[in-house]
């Protein structure tokens, strides 16, 4: 039986695990964006925040993923359900690229534009929402793109703690020394990562200011 047949026969389960995978990546990316963009703005506007925020995000990034999953397992509410835990861990990993690119994007706005905006009497939030964020958007989006691509890969490891996703196939395949099973997890994961990369890259180019 070749891989193609295996995919056809198990398409329901592959689809189910792919959706699970998407759920893990989607929710964690959303959380990372909701937390990371404000933190990025904060560190871009108040230099005192810059080092601690980026430093913390950097440190999280250096923790091996399997170890992070393990660390979080005994945490009360979190450890009750594996997907909660996986989402938290993926969110933590996704933070760094989002924070760093938000910071870079905002700091990269032409100082003359910001000075003109302040000089003509824009309030801080008008400047942020009408000038800084729109001009930083493509840079922020490229951070999100990196976060998504990394998360798709990392989320396969979440299966190790029973959070589901395409990693199920991979771990099962590894245990059973079955290449078809491994590919059934790896191929859809690769396709997800590539299409996220392509889609977000396209959006990023469209939003890039002239």
């Amino acid at each position: 039986m070749n891989v193609f047949h295996f995919f056809l026969q198990n398409h329901e389960q592959i689809l189910e695990l792919t959706l699970e995978h998407l759920w893990l990546v989607g929710i964690s990316t959303l959380l990372a964006v909701m937390i990371g963009i404000p933190l990025g703005i904060l560190s871009a506007h108040w230099p005192a925040w810059n080092k601690p925020v980026l430093g913390a995000a950097n440190i999280i990034q250096t923790i091996p993923s399997l170890a992070l999953f393990g660390f979080l397992l005994p945490v009360p509410w979190l450890g009750d359900r594996a997907d909660r835990l996986a989402i938290l861990a993926l969110t933590l990993y996704a933070l760094l690229p989002v924070i760093r690119n938000t910071y870079t994007g905002i700091r990269g706005v032409d100082p003359a534009v910001v000075e003109a905006g302040r000089g003509m009497g824009l309030t801080g939030s008008q400047l942020l929402f009408q000038v800084e964020l729109p001009l930083a958007l493509s840079v922020i989006l490229s951070g999100v793109r990196v976060a998504v691509v990394v998360s798709v890969g990392l989320a396969t490891i979440a299966a190790a703690i029973g959070a589901g996703g395409l990693g199920e196939f991979i771990f099962r395949g590894l245990a059973m020394v079955n290449n078809q099973l491994i590919l059934a997890g790896a191929i859809p994961a690769a396709v997800l990562a590539l299409s996220a990369d392509f889609g977000l890259g396209w959006l990023e180019r469209r939003l890039r200011p002239q």
Binding site: D110, A112, V113, V114, E115, A116, G117, G119, M120, Q130, V131, L135, P209, Q210
Partner: peptide, 10 residues
């Protein structure tokens, strides 16, 4: 307020 680098919103 007018500055040398103009600072038009691109």
């Amino acid at each position: 307020y007018v500055i040398q680098d103009v600072g038009l919103f691109p």
